[in-house]
């Protein structure tokens, strides 16, 4: 097995007196899509913030590319898509892309062809000159994804990327993610949509502040002797099937 791109060991995170994450352990290796699955409020976004170094863990370590986070320089190698469409509404799609490309430190010549490439991937080429305020919800999500893909990052972290987009586009996004994975990139994706979990290579089930299972979808279903990942979850929660 290749060296882990993300390695989370014994992560603990508290907000005030509330312990959101009790003991989080899992790894993401190159050429792998890891799905982090859990109900709303389970702490998926918090795990991502710890991984990126936006928040500091109360205990345990998050290492990315072998270095302990937080680490500002490493962020250049990570493509991040936030849960909310954090976009500048008064700017056009193109202007948003240029801005974030500059923030990532891409050179002028790279910026041009990177934008052409990511816009094609998410199917926004024709709408790049429109202001984001005139975009539909789905278009905003796609632009958000395009920003994450800028600069061909080795690691892509996507926080609920398929919320609020239509099934056809969701397929397209997953097809693109598979392509990236096949090119050797690592992808950490969170979702609370269980059937999406089937599409990941490895699934981390997050419940009550702990990763209760971390395995391939097929193995998980076998282990719990159920037909879908959703059932795995329900069984893990102790619901009678």
């Amino acid at each position: 097995m290749a060296a882990a791109i993300i390695n989370l060991t014994h992560l603990v995170k508290k907000f005030g007196t509330q312990t959101i994450l009790k003991d989080i352990n899992f790894t993401v290796v190159p050429g792998q899509i890891v799905g982090l699955i859990g109900p709303s409020g389970a702490g998926k976004s918090t795990i991502i913030k710890l991984t990126l170094g936006m928040e500091k863990a109360d205990n345990g370590t998050a290492t990315v590319f072998g270095q302990t986070m937080p680490q500002r320089q490493l962020l250049a190698k990570i493509g991040y898509m936030a849960q909310t469409d954090a976009l500048y509404e008064t700017l056009s799609g193109q202007e948003n892309l240029v801005f974030f490309a500059k923030m990532k430190g891409l050179s002028k010549s790279e910026i041009v062809h990177e934008i052409t490439y990511v816009a094609k991937v998410v199917g926004l080429t024709a709408d790049l000159n429109k202001r984001v305020s005139g975009y539909s919800g789905g278009m905003k999500r796609r632009l958000s994804l395009a920003i994450a893909l800028l600069g061909q990052p080795q690691l892509i972290v996507l926080d609920e990327p398929t919320v609020g987009i239509d099934p056809a586009l969701r397929r397209q996004v997953w097809r693109e993610l598979n392509k990236l994975r096949d090119a050797g990139r690592s992808i950490l994706i969170t979702t609370h949509v269980m059937d999406e979990a089937e599409l990941a290579d490895q699934v981390a089930l997050l419940l009550d502040g702990e990763v209760i299972a971390f395995d391939t979808p097929a193995k998980l279903k076998q282990q719990y002797q159920v037909a879908t990942i959703e059932d795995v979850f329900l069984k893990a929660e102790g619901v009678q099937l």
Partner: peptide, 14 residues
């Protein structure tokens, strides 16, 4: 509040 600051801080910007 729009989240763009978080996203901005997820880049290597100082």
């Amino acid at each position: 509040t729009s989240g763009t600051l978080n996203r901005l801080l997820a880049t290597p910007v100082k």
